[in-house]
Simulated scan of single mutants.
Amino acid sequence: MPFRKLGLFGAKVLVAASCVIPANAGDVEIVDATARQSGNSWIFSVTLKHGDTGWDHYADLWQVFSPNGQLLGERVLLHPHVEEQPFTRSLSGVEIPDEVDEVVIRARDSVHGVAEQEYRLTLPR
């Protein structure tokens, strides 16, 4: 039997190699989000998690919408965050109408587009 020649170390390597799951960045995930009012506008901090692989596949945008779908603000992410996961980025100067007490945050990656996940955030008014 050819596996007998592998020895204990070789057998462990073979088992470990057969258990490796191929890397797949998949959809971007919104892990957390906060909002705070600053004068007449709002500052949002959004934490994303994504298996960024480099310039060909990375989380590249998150957006803030009103519950009725009006785009209120967006943060473009200009580079991959391969070694920084999850990561948080902020956006200031977002104007929110007084009657809006909840927002919807969506995120996008450069391969899959906008993820299905919607993160609902109640504004601390």
Score class of each variant (00 low, 15 high):
N68C: 06
F44Q: 09
N24A: 13
E95S: 06
P86Q: 02
R4I: 14
E84Q: 07
E102D: 04
F9I: 11
H79Y: 06
F87D: 02
S45H: 11
G10V: 08
G10Q: 11
V76I: 14
A11N: 04
I43A: 13
V13H: 03
A17Q: 14
I43G: 04
W42Y: 15
R4C: 10
L123C: 09
R89H: 03
V104L: 12
A107C: 00
W55C: 03
H57M: 08
I105L: 08
A115Q: 01
Q85K: 12
G69A: 11
V104S: 09
V103R: 07
T122F: 06
T47M: 12
D60L: 06
N40E: 14
E102M: 09
V114C: 09
L8G: 00
F65C: 03
V103N: 07
D56E: 13
S92D: 11
G39P: 12
L8A: 08
A35L: 12
N40I: 09
G26W: 05
E116G: 05
L77M: 04
L121M: 08
R4E: 15
A25G: 14
H81P: 02
H79I: 00
W42T: 10
L72Y: 05
G51N: 13
L48V: 04
V103H: 05
T88G: 01
S18N: 13
G73E: 02
K12E: 04
V104P: 00
R36C: 09
G93Q: 02
D98K: 12
W62L: 13
G73S: 04
E74T: 05
R89Y: 01
G54L: 10
S110Q: 02
L72G: 08
S90G: 07
V114Y: 10
V46N: 14
G54I: 10
H112N: 15
C19R: 11
Q117K: 13
G26R: 14
V82Y: 01
E29H: 11
H112P: 01
R106E: 07
T47A: 09
Q63V: 02
D52T: 04
W62K: 14
N40R: 13
V31F: 03
V15L: 11
Q37W: 07
S110T: 06
Q70H: 09
S90Y: 03
G10T: 10
N24C: 10
Y58S: 03
L77Q: 01
E29S: 08
E118M: 07
T122D: 09
V28F: 04
T47S: 14
R4T: 13
D52P: 06
E102H: 04
R125T: 06
P22G: 13
G26M: 08
S90D: 08
S92C: 01
I43P: 02
L123R: 11
G69N: 11
V94F: 00
I105M: 01
V82M: 05
R108H: 14
T122R: 14
G51L: 11
V28G: 02
P97A: 02
L71Q: 09
A16V: 07
